[in-house]
Amino acid sequence: MADQRAYLHTLVRGTVAKHFPGKQNCAAREIAEFWAGRELEDHEVDYGGFSRKMKGSREFTLNDVVALMSITGSRRIITVLQQMQDQMQTPLEPREALAAAAAKEAGEAVAAAIGTHNHATVAKEAGDAEQAFRRIREQAEAELGAKGQG
């Protein structure tokens, strides 16, 4: 998450630098006036706060991003946010739920192997059990990889 924050900070800084080259105070004023809906006096604009945001000691707010997008017409930041969200992995199922499903499928496979002469049923139930155990293994491997223990 820290890398994503740093990347987003860089994107916002880049948008400011591209559309307000060498004029950081102009960007601060434009953003403040965007939300105020009127022209502001110098004492009404938080130039120091914006400077701290540019240096990274404060984070840009959603309001800053919305104002910059509206003022500049650039959708780059929101496009990158969407790409980041699309790349996020789906949450993992709890291991207990996976284990319960595997136990159920294994029991069905054993029952089919003992209690039926239908080879198709035995093969299907064994395949379901195998798939349930594979999900446990794949999740454990994914967790190992995410923690850098692969």
Rank of each mutant, 00 (worst) to 15 (best):
Q4D: 07
M54T: 06
G37T: 12
S57H: 05
T15L: 15
H43R: 02
A6M: 04
A27L: 09
L8M: 11
H9Q: 12
A28L: 09
S57M: 02
E59Y: 08
E33H: 06
H9K: 12
F34P: 01
A32Y: 07
R5I: 13
A28E: 04
V45E: 03
A28F: 05
K23A: 12
R5C: 08
F34N: 05
R13P: 01
F34Q: 05
H9Y: 04
G37D: 14
S51N: 14
R52C: 03
L40T: 10
A17E: 15
H43K: 02
G14R: 09
Q24T: 13
F60P: 06
E33R: 08
E33Y: 07
A27D: 02
L40H: 04
E41Y: 00
H9A: 14
R58V: 09
K18M: 13
I31M: 13
H43E: 09
A6V: 10
G49P: 05
G22A: 13
F20C: 03
M54Q: 11
P21K: 11
R29Y: 04
G22E: 07
L8P: 00
H43L: 00
F20K: 11
S51D: 01
E59G: 13
F34C: 08
E39S: 14
R5W: 02
L62Y: 06
E59P: 09
L62Q: 04
G14E: 05
T61H: 06
N63F: 07
R58P: 01
T10M: 10
E44A: 15
H9I: 04
H9R: 14
G14F: 07
G56P: 10
Y47T: 02
P21C: 13
E33K: 09
P21E: 09
T61D: 12
K55M: 12
D42C: 00
K23V: 05
A28W: 03
V16Q: 04
E41M: 10
M54Y: 10
V16P: 02
Y7E: 12
Q24D: 10
K55A: 12
E33W: 07
P21S: 10
D42V: 11
W35I: 11
A6G: 02
F20N: 03
P21H: 10
R29D: 03
G37H: 05
I31K: 04
G48M: 00
G48D: 00
A17V: 10
Q24F: 03
